[in-house]
């Protein structure tokens, strides 16, 4: 299914430039000004759960970007033939299908990573970013902008995840991507890893502080929500 649809996508918008201003906005806005986590308040559950270490956070971001992009694309292609009353079920089935695909690919080619992530990959189904963007954007847009919007939101989610995970891994465990970054010398002189960073509340504090920083830099976001 997805093979056919990717071929069709550019054809539908031939009249419009592939990266027109509107399309660029769909792709880049979610990275900062319209970030799914800090501005749209979507997808926070998994941001708290997978950010204890950097590596799972990165793989989770890639998986989510894939699912968000292709589910947006497929929904945008068939949006006119979905009856309004059962749209959520149709959306969820497509999302669940793509998540199963990601899960199977991870199992086949990266078994050790998949073992670490198994629960989180399943949780992409209930990640509000995917559903939220389908409801808010893909249901009313052409396939190509919807696809870009999916990629943009996945990347915006990934940025926050990696930033939070870097802080939590460095200060909580003294490592980065599994390598030791805080020198032994520190520990010898009484430095102790911050136990709070490993607990879920730390992710909330870090995202809260990130929002504070983002909004003090970009004042038009103040009072958005």
């Amino acid at each position: 299914m997805s093979v056919e649809t990717t071929v069709e996508a550019p054809k539908a918008t031939k009249k419009e430039a592939l990266f027109s201003k509107k399309n660029r906005r769909a792709l880049f806005d979610p990275l900062d000004d319209n970030n799914p986590i800090t501005v749209q308040v979507l997808g926070i559950c998994s941001a708290l759960a997978v950010t204890v270490q950097v590596k799972p956070a990165m793989i989770m971001a890639v998986g989510l970007t894939f699912v968000a992009a292709f589910s947006s694309l497929i929904i945008a292609l068939i949006r006119d033939s979905i009856p309004g009353r059962i749209r959520m079920i149709v959306q969820l089935i497509i999302v669940a299908l793509l998540v199963t695909l990601v899960d199977q690919v991870l199992k086949a080619y990266m078994f050790d990573v998949s073992k670490k992530l198994s629960v989180f990959v399943g949780l992409i189904i209930t990640n509000c970013i995917v559903m939220g963007r389908l409801e808010a954007f893909a249901m009313a847009q052409k396939p190509w902008p919807a696809f870009l919007d999916g990629i943009g939101n996945g990347l915006g989610y990934g940025i926050i995840l990696v930033v939070v995970a870097v802080f939590r891994e460095v200060f909580g465990a003294g490592t980065l991507l599994g390598f030791k970054v805080i020198p032994q010398w520190f520990y010898d002189h009484g430095y102790v890893n911050n136990g709070l960073m490993v607990l879920p509340p730390a992710a909330l504090f870090l995202i809260g502080i990130y929002i504070w920083w983002q909004r003090s830099r970009n004042t038009k976001l103040v009072n958005v929500s």
């Binding site: 809260g208 504070w212 009072n223």
Partner: peptide, 14 residues
């Protein structure tokens, strides 16, 4: 001001 709304809600939830 920049912390109002979502930011402070996150920290309170924590």
């Amino acid at each position: 001001e920049p912390l109002q709304g979502l930011g402070i809600a996150m920290i309170i939830t924590g």
